[in-house]
Design a binder for these strands. Structure first.
Lengths: 309, 309
DNA sequence: GTGAAAGCGCTAACAC
DNA sequence: GTGTTAGCGCTTTCAC
């Protein structure tokens, strides 16, 4: 029980002497670093910066700082990142880089470090996940195109190693069936990576073999690649082919035509992941929950009714 | 002097027991955290991720890990970031957020923490800087337009609080003079921020008051805003107005028309900054050098000869 | 050359 | 309640 004025005098003196508690000494004692690792596959992919921002905004509110590791989509580097983060004794991990079968991930989980996944569901480990509602995004896309009058709707499917790839493709199949789209298997072409180049490559195959009047791409990059092909061939979008993307990356509204695409609340995804992680840090034995955040189709110029030819 | 086989047996045992030196205990003793702070104004600006990547690739090679702080262009948050980073005892700082008069920056320098600046020159403090060669980028832009036959070339000037803003504007004036462009002061309109919206706002003024046949924008965002205005008004680019951007952000080649813009080797900027910082960590009294990396004009569809009306 | 011991700055546990 | 002390895991110094 010290007097309030003494408290203030001490605080003043601390400030005057620029006293800062040394986080290393503290960490050494408490075994907590107040650092959270954020592992992402590609920082230059416009998807991830907003996620990081969202996460950091809640983490910093609780005194945590984040260590960002960019794995460059390389499983080897992902392993190294995990090791580096573990060596640094981060208190928890937010992982957006996980493939469906993720080896590094399980080793982290084994080291019983709290982990929250983003956008990627791991098939084995039972971990909390935060993501956009892929099923709903694809449903909205299919419904939009069906309502415009399309039936031959193609799908550029994302890589089957990524859970977003399979989830969106599964939703595509389901809603095409439920809403009466064509079920020709040629209408689905799988890609190896989420990239513009793969979008162009797979897009050519799709156009050649299935002659769709509209295409739902697994993400915006694939859509951009497809759009390139359409222009190369002298076709017009949306007159000859409607295109829908996924994610609504920056500048997708500046393309010509502006891309119809599914908007995902990326910052909120990051923030929610951080919240869940913080909760787990306090109660490690919480049930792993899966949170699917609401998404909305952003209709723009790349979709229209098919020409009645 | 121990036998080689013993060395190996020890190393094996260490691996078997998953021994990892505790960086906090080490840091406590050595007063080095092996962490470098990277302060950037906006992670969602596509400029910065490649810079971070470049920096991290050289830092991780030397066993350093980076703490990324996103200040959201807010001087207040910049201060907080510096404090947080200092509290965490980072060994050095790479700063891309500095304004020309940067208060927080000087306090960091005063704490004699090695600092390297990126893209931003601080007017007071004498700190090493790494950036693209703004003067050369603008020279190439002006020369390109002059050679196409333009004389009334406008400039959407970046914010005067940022050194890139003033450097590019100064270079614009100089090369317009040297290469024979019009020197009407109305041809230069200043913006408050590097944003699409500001590009549109200032672009309108520029078009209304100066009637240029071509415009060099302070960066790509401003160029995109201007392009929006051009389309809104039913003008065509490049027929009615040629536009040049700066930075060559992702997807600038997918605009319609694809944007002519100056390509800056961002990853190399980050890497070079990291190299300089590492050197300074060993020899703190090195002269602060300024490194200007070579840039190149990427000519695309948004520039053409003026109509001979 | 090798091994023991002190101590980095903090927190938590324990006597008082 | 309050003051003291042990010790987190490492490095470095200093005897041996």
């Amino acid at each position: 029980m010290v007097s309030e004025s003494t408290v203030r005098r001490v605080q003043l003196a601390a400030k005057a002497l620029k006293y800062r508690p040394n986080p290393m000494a503290r960490g050494l004692k408490t075994n907590r670093t107040m650092m959270i690792g954020i592992v992402i596959p590609d920082l230059t992919n416009a998807l991830f910066p907003p996620i990081i921002r969202g996460a950091e905004s809640v983490l910093s509110g609780s005194g945590y700082i984040s260590l960002i590791a960019d794995t460059d989509n390389d499983p080897e580097r992902e392993r190294e990142s995990f090791d580096a983060l573990r060596a640094r004794q981060v208190d928890g991990l937010i992982v957006a880089s996980a493939q469906r079968e993720d080896w590094a991930l399980r080793s982290a989980d084994a080291a019983d470090m709290p982990v929250v996944l983003i956008n990627r569901r791991d098939d084995q480990a039972n971990l909390p996940v935060v993501m956009g509602d892929d099923a709903s995004g694809i449903e909205q896309s299919v419904r939009h195109l069906i309502e415009l009058g399309h039936r031959r709707i193609g799908h550029l499917a994302g890589p089957s190693e990524l859970s977003t790839g399979v989830a969106r493709t599964r939703a595509f199949r389901q809603w095409m069936f439920e809403l009466g789209g064509d079920s020709d298997p040629d209408l689905i072409v799988e890609t190896d990576t989420y990239s513009v180049e793969e979008g162009a490559r797979a897009g050519k195959i799709l156009l050649d073999t299935a002659a769709p009047t509209a295409v739902i791409a697994g993400n915006d990059q694939l859509a951009v690649g497809l759009l390139d092909v359409v222009k190369e061939r002298g076709m017009r979008c949306p007159e000859d082919l409607s295109i829908v993307g996924y994610n609504d990356m920056p500048y997708m509204d500046k393309l010509s035509p502006p891309l119809t695409t599914v908007r995902v609340p990326h910052a909120e995804v990051g923030a929610e992941a951080a919240r869940i992680l913080l909760r787990r840090l306090e109660e490690p034995d919480l049930d792993p929950s899966t949170v699917a955040l609401q998404v909305r189709l952003q209709v723009r110029g790349s979709t229209a009714s098919p020409r009645t030819s």
